[in-house]
Design a protein around this nucleic acid. Structure first.
Lengths: 345, 345
DNA sequence: ATTAGCACTCGGAAGAGGGGAGTGCTAATA
DNA sequence: TATTAGCACTCCCCTCTTCCGAGTGCTAAT
């Protein structure tokens, strides 16, 4: 059904369109791409490809444009080649990321920035998914007479801290006792199991501190379940306006508004299975109407092989998938390695 | 030099232009605004106003448009009226802000969001300025064999935490001793004085922990001086595209890029004296070229009358200054009150 | 001092025309 | 039988022209 020549024509059109954003005609194609047949033959092939739903005509006397289906075909073939990672580039990017990132926050923000700069697309990064992580340390600290600071450090050394008020006076020593108790009980506990343990008679074991614990438990819970726990970083929003497909202000506005809707973006990025590897959603494949004319490429990053977050790029369907996939792979391994290296014992 | 009738004409033009973004002619003006004289007279006044640099003509046969100087005149007169705050609206906004903001982070992010929604402009918010604040509590916690968590709480209960590695083993008790020592020495110390104290023979007093302290001091310093300490929140970027003055993609891109340049924005917002009250920068008054066609209105927020942060709005020079000033005043007092209420003992 | 009248200006919308890149079909060719 | 050359046709886009109307500045009348 799709012989080699048809593929050759199709890929030539895709490549050309990715660069120029202009419909391609048979003549230009035969001149600039080495197909080896005449424009007339190419026209026939194009006609077939159109019938197969792989090409579209903006109007009857324009050239052809790849359809979403064509991009899908194309990226699927790209994903088969498990391209090797360019060690030199990798090291270069790693250096940049490390130099600017003492903390996870900075690492991710910088990643988004550099990612966007390199690719000239909008970069999205979501922070490590706490629920996949374990409690490494819990500490309660008295910061003033009736204020207690709660600090939770997880196994990726991501710190959450909250200050809350207690009604009855409590001493630093008492807080220490509670801290130690909690550490003993909760150490290495996956955060998503926290809820169960808290509700399972933890209270009885430390009866004398029931008062404080009672206040503490909802706060602990909240700090885990608060959906805001997953942070979103993005960068390069202005780059959207470089692309002719968004020269229509309304289209640009639609996308910009969407990106500013943090909840939607998180929902979208988290919905996809966090399976390892690259994922691509092309144009109409998007669930969200606002993205029906755009594509998203995402990759995961991991600690110890466990997916904990995602990085992604957003742009017109005509994006340079090949390049983006490789860049994302590069960042994926780099971020993973930096997180592992810098924050593990 | 500017008699009442001239002012009447000028203000009518400003008001009309703020709404419509269209140049106004003498006929329309006399029809829709109650000036009380004929178009011909208005034309004469307009001509005078133009000579004074208060009006511009896009071209010889268009109507008139207010100049930056006109807006300056206008807002200066606005700022004289110390308008009373609408208690009802104030409470409404306060409710929204409180309901969504357990933490300072959220409060400010939400403020930006709501501010942008209400005004339909880009909202900018910068987080409390640590240097104006004092140390309330310092705590060191051992989170694993060679990792120490440093937590600094300031008097606005804003928490900074860092994890660092120590070379030599140290016990929790030892860390506690150090914590207590530091608290005693540094409690209530203004953060910007921290550097001095640290370098002034603090080491000698706790000689046995010299090793740890030596590692700690640069980290403490850094956590204060790190320019990233001031966070920037913004929202409503997409709203820029609602305004005809940014229908030119390049203009929109210029502004968007500028806003994404966090350092520049911070520099800009922090440069102005943090004096109490509203500040307005109109068009050409802007230091940054990218903003020469835009205006910025900012207000401060405070704790105990001390300015600790800023909120602002950015849009075309033709913004509704009157409304924006009032909205910012509303938010200013609300944010201040919430910060004081929620986070003070 | 104000206003009516009028010639003039200029941008923007609407329409006409031409050029060019492209298509699909048909007939000739290898 | 697959490929190609030739050709009529299509339709977008660019440019040019025209026309309209809102606006101005000047002058003369009130």
């Amino acid at each position: 059904m799709l012989d080699e020549r048809k593929l050759k024509v199709l890929y030539a059109i895709i490549n050309s369109y990715i660069i120029s954003a202009e419909p391609i005609g048979s003549r230009t194609l035969s001149k600039h791409y080495d197909i080896g047949v005449s424009p007339a033959t190419i026209r026939n092939e194009m006609s077939d490809l159109e019938e197969l739903g792989l090409l579209n005509k903006p109007h009857s006397s324009a050239g052809r444009v790849p359809s979403d289906k064509a991009y899908r075909l194309y990226v699927d073939s790209l994903l088969l080649n498990n391209s090797t990672i360019d060690e030199y580039k990798k090291q270069k990017i790693k250096d940049i990321l490390i130099s600017k990132s003492q903390e996870v926050d900075h690492l991710l923000q910088t990643s988004a920035k550099v990612l966007s700069e390199i690719t000239n697309h909008i970069a999205l990064v979501i922070s490590p998914h706490l629920e996949n992580s374990k409690i490494k340390h819990i500490q309660l600290v008295l910061v003033s007479d009736n204020q207690v600071l709660l600090v939770i450090v997880n196994n990726s050394d991501i710190i959450r801290s909250t200050i809350f008020k207690v009604d009855n006076q409590i001493s630093p020593d008492q807080l220490n006792t509670i801290s130690n108790f909690l550490n003993e009980k909760l150490n290495n506990l996956p955060l998503n199991k926290l809820n169960d343990v808290l509700n399972m008679g933890l209270l009885d074991e430390l009866y004398e501190y029931k008062g404080v614990l009672k206040e503490l438990i909802p706060i602990l819970n909240e700090s885990v379940y608060d959906s805001e726990d997953v942070e979103l970083y993005y960068d390069g929003v202005a780059r959207l306006l470089n692309y002719p497909e968004y020269k229509d202000i309304n289209k640009a506005k639609t996308i910009l508004s969407f990106i500013e809707d943090k909840d939607k973006i998180l929902e979208m990025l988290l919905k996809e299975n966090l399976g390892n590897g690259i994922e691509i959603v092309i144009g109409e494949e998007n669930v969200y109407d606002q993205l029906k004319e755009s594509s998203i490429v995402t990759a995961t990053y991991n600690i110890d092989g466990k997916t904990i977050g995602k990085i992604g790029l957003l742009g017109p369907t005509r994006m340079d998938y090949y390049k983006l996939i490789n860049v994302l792979r590069l960042f994926s391994v780099n971020i993973s390695e930096i997180l592992e290296m810098e924050f593990r014992k």
